[in-house]
């Protein structure tokens, strides 16, 4: 199972946000997508998901254009967690996670297999304790864990996660990183848009750095997050040796 974005370009108003980005995600790898605020990470995920059209370029899921997949079949292969997983109504966490089974069950009622998948997903992100509370009463981190559980419950082999560790406390953020690494070793393909370089880079197989609408670098974390690239990407200096995490960053001298 693989997802390829080829020459993706998109404009937002007068601004060229992406200028021809190539990005690939294969099953069994954990990839980080990094870049400044507004560099187009979330937009790129939405293009790869096929929810937003690109001005130029194409997205292929397993060699077939993303738009040519029947919606439910695509959803069985590609899951997504948005940056802001909100729901204005008082669904319980468990009900929201059960929505992750929609691509597999259609209009059928939940089967024992569906319930087991929901329970497993809730347990995986340590959300069982608050799963039966209304999501409107949960904290931001708890809601994010519910959204992650929903993506896991789909059983999709490729997952696009937009800042999945935002709002998570350190314990759950680390647990999530370990979980995603273990799942990727077992065959899951995970693409994570993130600013948490120190937290997630040690778990990643590859990092894709977006800068000025293009891919600045694509490769192992130690290479991509070099002092030079970090300075270009974020305008900060890395003061610890390359290849060592966590790294310390300081504002640029001069």
């Amino acid at each position: 199972m693989k997802l390829h974005g080829n020459g993706l370009a998109v404009r937002r108003g007068e601004r060229e946000l992406l200028l021809g980005v190539d990005l690939r995600l294969h099953a069994g790898e954990l990839v980080l997508l990094v870049g400044r605020n507004g560099s187009g990470k979330s937009t790129l995920l939405r293009l790869l998901l096929g929810v937003e059209p690109c001005d130029r370029g194409s997205v292929e899921l397993d060699g077939r254009p993303i738009g040519a997949w029947p919606a439910r079949e695509r959803a069985q292969r590609l899951a997504f967690v948005p940056q802001d997983p909100d729901c204005p109504f008082e669904f319980t966490g468990r009900e929201l996670v059960a929505m992750g089974r929609h691509p597999l069950r259609g209009s059928r009622t939940l089967t024992d297999e569906d319930r087991a998948a929901v329970d497993q997903a809730l347990t995986a992100v340590d959300a069982g304790e608050f799963a039966d509370r209304a999501v409107t009463t949960l904290s931001g981190g708890e809601r994010r864990r519910i959204a992650l559980a929903r993506a896991l419950a789909t059983g999709a082999p490729l997952q696009l996660l937009d800042e999945p560790t935002a709002n998570l406390d350190l314990e759950h953020a680390l647990a999530l990183a370990q979980l995603l690494q273990a799942r990727s070793r077992a065959g899951l393909g995970v693409l994570i848009a993130t600013h948490e370089l120190n937290l997630l880079a040690p778990f990643a197989d590859r990092v894709v750095a977006l800068h000025a609408g293009q891919v600045l670098a694509d490769g192992p974390p130690e290479t991509v997050l070099s002092a030079t690239n970090v300075a270009t990407l974020f305008g900060v200096d890395a003061v610890t040796p390359q290849g060592y995490f966590p790294r310390a960053f300081v504002p640029r001298r001069g």
Binding site: R46, L49, G50, V51, E52, A71, R72, R74, A75, Q76, L78, A79, F80, P82, D84, P85, D86, C87, P88, F89, F91, E95, M99, G100, H102, P103, S107, A147, A151, T154, L160
Partner: peptide, 23 residues
């Protein structure tokens, strides 16, 4: 008839609903 689950999914953001297999 038969659209109750679709309505449930529409209470999510468009990208989430799309990712779960509806337009």
């Amino acid at each position: 008839a038969g659209r109750a689950r679709q309505l449930d999914l529409l209470t999510l953001r468009d990208d989430s609903a799309h990712s779960l297999g509806i337009d």
